[in-house]
Amino acid sequence: MQALLRFPSRDRPKSDQPSSPPVLDLPPTEDFVATLIQQAQHGDLIAFERLMACYQTKILGYARAFVSDAEQANDVAQDAMLRIYRSLGGFRFQSSPKTWMFRIVRNIVLDYAKSRRSKERKREQSIDHTPDSEMSACSEGNPEAQVLANERKEQLWQALSQVPESFRSVLLFCDLQGMSYDEVAAILNIPVGTVKSRLNRGREFLREVLLKQGAFSNSQTVEGKKT
């Protein structure tokens, strides 16, 4: 926390060299996030980049489910982060910072997906998919290679893209990012009961899509059930 106090004033860091914010394994605490936001509100870029480092994979993961290739998803995630930075001045801590940020992310991503769909209709050509294998090559040593084969990942992203948006957002926030029902309800401004029902329907929808793709044919089924 002490390191965050290096730039307490409105002055920008003089160096134009990019910072290398640490990627946190644990979810950041509310106080930590609030401190970063307060500093970023005064123009502290280092604080803002640290803040984004806490949420970068979640933001990118959400964008990736609406954007057809990984490179563009990274661009959209950066755009969303820039929008968050521009909107920082108006944030008054009346809601959770996480809720506020992901509302912005969702709006940016959905706007992008909408505009891209309209462009695609005009061009009438197929989307050039950039497989995530290129991404994994850039992240050597990342556990993703151990967890899922690139083929499976691509299959999942494509399956997710077929899930209706209302179900997909809930599915992404709950299952992909592990948010609580309350957090998702606040982001989407819907009741918790609706979150639960959309999550169930989204899971079912995704299962059916994966089933049609033959995703379960080679996978091991899990006999145990959670209660």
Binding site: Q56, A77, Q78, M135, C138, D175, L206
Partner: peptide
């Protein structure tokens, strides 16, 4: 089992998301 597998895959997919190498430099 398929439904539970789907949920498991989603969690694994979430943990496998990484930004591209020059992401931070571009953002900065």
């Amino acid at each position: 089992n398929q439904l539970e597998q789907t949920t498991t895959w989603m969690r694994e997919l979430g943990s496998s998301v990484t930004v591209r190498r020059d992401f931070h430099a571009e953002l900065h």
